[in-house]
Design a protein around this nucleic acid. Structure first.
Ligand SMILES: [Mn+2]
Ligand SMILES: [Mn+2]
Ligand SMILES: [Zn+2]
Ligand SMILES: [Zn+2]
Lengths: 142, 142
DNA sequence: TTGCTTTTGAGATTCATTCTCAATAAATAC
DNA sequence: GTATTTATTGAGAATGAATCTCAAAAGCAA
């Protein structure tokens, strides 16, 4: 959380953006306890913490966090975009249970190399991964 | 297109669903020339062909095509769901250029094995793949 | 054809996300 | 600290993809 804040500060400065109170509240909420979260999760979490930031500001701030490399949009669930920390979190893929909604992370090491190799072959510069599959989790298979 | 239609027919019958004219028109549009398409693409294509099906019906029919295994939702672009044939089309991943929107397909063989292995490890039954990355294509990297 | 069930089209509705704009806060210089 | 400048915020309006409603139409079986 030290390094994240420093990176963010630096990123904002490099873009001539201001380090405002709402932006800090959001950063802290993101790195406090969330693994996978959507905008509403953040909004509720911030409210539970007796702070206040408008939904509009959260929507506006997320692209900044993404661009700074601290988080990334990793999947979609119930027609909502879902984000997660990227900083200090290796690339991986998500198995999403289409029955119970459970999200399983897998392939923390294996995936990156292969995908990158394929991208290189196409001369493609990857900015954000989006790796997943829908299906049935262990429990929901019966 | 022979086999696809037969499969579809069978699928519908097995579900006690009727083989209607709109459902056929949509099936034909999907398998005529589309690689990646969204609902609007289909709608326009059908109109260009001097036929007519409502958007609502297209939205209602797509899940049937997905369930029958003929198509699958492979990615999202410009906040629209994008589909593609699955029938006779091996799993692969998509590199999407965030600058020009180009979609590059890659990894027809390499990916599947790895992902399946990882899924097995988790006892997860894959129904639909969603593999890709956003970034810059060859041209847009300058 | 009749009778029964499913499907369709058109428009209304939902809901995540984006936009607008007047009021406010950050940064910088003095 | 104050003043100036510029970016940011919150609230609500707007957008737009996807879903829903319901009366009219079509498929199907006999
Ligand atoms: Mn994850
Ligand atoms: Mn494809
Ligand atoms: Zn499950
Ligand atoms: Zn490009």
């Amino acid at each position: 959380m030290k390094k994240e804040k420093a990176l963010y500060r630096e990123f904002l400065k490099s873009k001539n953006l201001k380090l405002t109170k709402p932006r800090l509240i959001i950063l802290e909420a993101v790195f406090k306890n969330n693994e996978h979260f959507n905008v509403d999760d953040l909004y509720e979490q911030i409210k539970r913490n007796h702070q206040n930031v408008s939904r509009a500001t959260i929507y506006r701030t997320i692209p900044l966090l993404v661009e700074s490399g601290l988080i990334s949009q990793s999947l979609r669930c119930e027609s909502k975009d879902i984000y997660e920390h990227t900083y200090g979190h290796e690339n991986h893929l998500h198995f999403i249970c289409s029955n119970c909604g459970k999200i399983i992370e897998s392939g923390f090491n294996e995936v990156e190399g292969l995908i990158e190799q394929l991208a290189n072959k196409e001369n493609f510069k990857i900015q954000e991964y989006n790796l997943g599959a829908r299906g049935l989790c262990k429990n929901c298979r019966e």
